[in-house]
Write a protein that binds this DNA or RNA. Structure first.
Lengths: 89, 89
DNA sequence: AAGGGCGATATCGTTCTTAATCATTGACGT
DNA sequence: ACGTCAATGATTAAGAACGATATCGCCCTT
């Protein structure tokens, strides 16, 4: 599923046309993105939660040269599925 | 940020009222949820991707009794931030 | 319709997540 | 605004993910 597929579903579920649905989808996604960029926690019951956490890893690996590589400290986004998504069969 | 906060943002970014914005947000989220429940991969450039993967872990831990616990095989949702979210400062 | 970038993949060692449970905080429907 | 029930935090140990890089694949903008 890609962005356009989501817009298609919105089109079916609402009275909006495809173009409008796409704008709506992008508005929702950009809102989430902005919040996470601001390191804001997001919690939506029944769907999932997102949290920005500190990266503690200090180094990585280079495939080709097989030697250590410095990794800058930074942030990570932690995703946790909600109740409905936790036990999908 | 909770679901209502997202609706508030949609209200500001669009010409919809609060109630309509909330319905829109729920439509988008439920669309994503349905896709993941169907084990469908989701990929949105510039935002993130979701993928359903097989759980391979075979056991867990009981805090109280400090012993292993059988874990049924199942599925997990893997979240990967996109380009924009990967290196938030 | 098509090319340009972005995302996926493979690799390896260290770091981190996962699972169950109870209490507490707090999201969200009425 | 209140009440209900989901989400968080803590714990342990094993197994999986993370991180940099180049190439391939394909989403998305023009």
């Amino acid at each position: 599923m890609i962005k356009n597929d989501i817009a298609l579903e919105i089109e079916k579920k609402s009275e909006f046309n495809r173009a409008k649905s796409l704008l709506i989808v992008e508005a929702v996604l950009s809102t989430l993105k902005e919040a996470l960029t601001n390191e804001e926690k997001i919690e939506i019951r029944g769907f999932s939660s997102f949290k920005v956490v500190r990266k503690k890893t200090g180094f990585g690996r280079d495939i080709r040269r097989k030697k250590q590589i410095k990794i800058k400290k930074g942030k990570r986004i932690k995703f946790r599925p909600g109740q409905d998504l936790k036990n999908i069969k």
